[in-house]
């Protein structure tokens, strides 16, 4: 586990599939950031237009993904949707990590009563089926991008807390933590410098996987009508919009659906590769295997 660049190199060398994952995710992120500047029909993407003559156009050179019931360019709207999905993915996972990591770390390292109390609270959240909890929260909070992110991250953080907790309870008994105590380091320094960096691997991998799942679940919420505001070009909502006319104008739902599929797949491939590259032990074994042939 050397520098970031060698990390990427390692990923690329490891397998073609992880490279595919890396490409998809990179493409998704770049599209998400640049979408407003690169879409062919920015007004359509924002949902401000209504072109009665161009309704339900099948895919063509002018509209590669066709047009929807308001005559808007689906391609532009899908590209713009990447931006919302990116915000949702980063927002949900980021917020969930922000709550889950401190809870798991403190519960695992401090242990005792404080630890059990924190974990019982976590268990209470885990007792609810996550999607159901998210739907209930989203319905209570009301529609909107921000509320969707809040609803999803509240149903999400307990998984990270538990994952980290389990790892921390085993890492804190490793001899290198004893070594750190022998130096007279304080609790906080041991927690953050020695225990946390060596406990993060499972959480990092899970977070990468969850980027895809967050997009999927946000799309699900929008599809059910408790997600982002109507007319937002969010992928789940785009699929819903085309749902009524799926038999005649299949392209309206298909392309945003494909966008979700490919992006989720990309995050899965990347997470898989991350798992191996982030764990110095697995990496060393793999390295040895390569040397030995």
């Amino acid at each position: 586990m050397a520098s970031a660049s060698s990390q990427v190199l390692w990923l690329i060398r490891r397998s073609k599939l992880s490279l595919v994952g890396l490409f998809i995710v990179a493409g998704f992120v770049v599209t998400g950031i640049l979408a407003p500047f690169i879409v062919p029909y920015p007004e359509d993407a924002r949902g401000e237009t209504y072109n009665i003559e161009e309704r339900f156009q099948p895919p063509s050179w002018e509209h590669p993904f066709g047009t929807d019931e308001y005559g808007r360019d689906v391609f532009s709207r899908v590209l713009m949707g990447a931006r919302y999905s990116l915000i949702i993915a980063v927002g949900v996972v980021g917020l969930a990590l922000l709550i889950g990591i401190p809870v798991g770390l403190v519960a695992g390292y401090v242990g005792g009563r404080v630890g059990s109390m924190l974990m019982r609270v976590t268990d209470m959240f885990l007792a609810f089926p996550p999607l159901l909890l998210a739907i209930a929260l989203a319905a209570t909070l009301g529609r909107g991008l921000f509320n969707t992110i809040i609803a999803l991250s509240i149903s999400w953080w307990p998984w990270y807390a538990r994952l980290l907790y389990v790892r921390v309870t085993s890492v804190k008994n490793m001899p290198f933590v004893d070594s750190a105590r022998l130096l007279g380091l304080g609790r906080l320094a041991i927690m953050f410098r020695h225990v946390l960096p060596n406990s993060l691997t499972p959480v990092t991998v899970q977070a990468a996987l969850d980027m895809g799942s967050a997009i999927l679940e946000a799309a699900g919420l929008s599809f059910l009508g408790v997600g982002v505001d109507p007319s937002t070009p969010e992928w789940g909502l785009l699929v819903t919009e085309g749902w009524a006319s799926i038999s005649s104008a299949w392209w309206i739902s298909l392309f945003p659906g494909l966008a979700i599929l490919v992006t989720v797949l990309g995050f899965n491939l990347l997470a898989d590769a991350l798992r191996e590259s982030l764990d110095p032990r697995i990496r060393r074994i793999a390295l040895t295997r390569r040397i030995l042939g």
Partner: peptide, 23 residues
């Protein structure tokens, strides 16, 4: 005083791969 003691008493453990922070 504990810090003074820690400074004067150190240790080497059995398995260096476990007693050195791998990161």
């Amino acid at each position: 005083e504990l810090k003074w003691y820690r400074r004067n008493v150190q240790a080497v453990f059995q398995n260096p791969f476990l007693s050195l922070n791998p990161r």
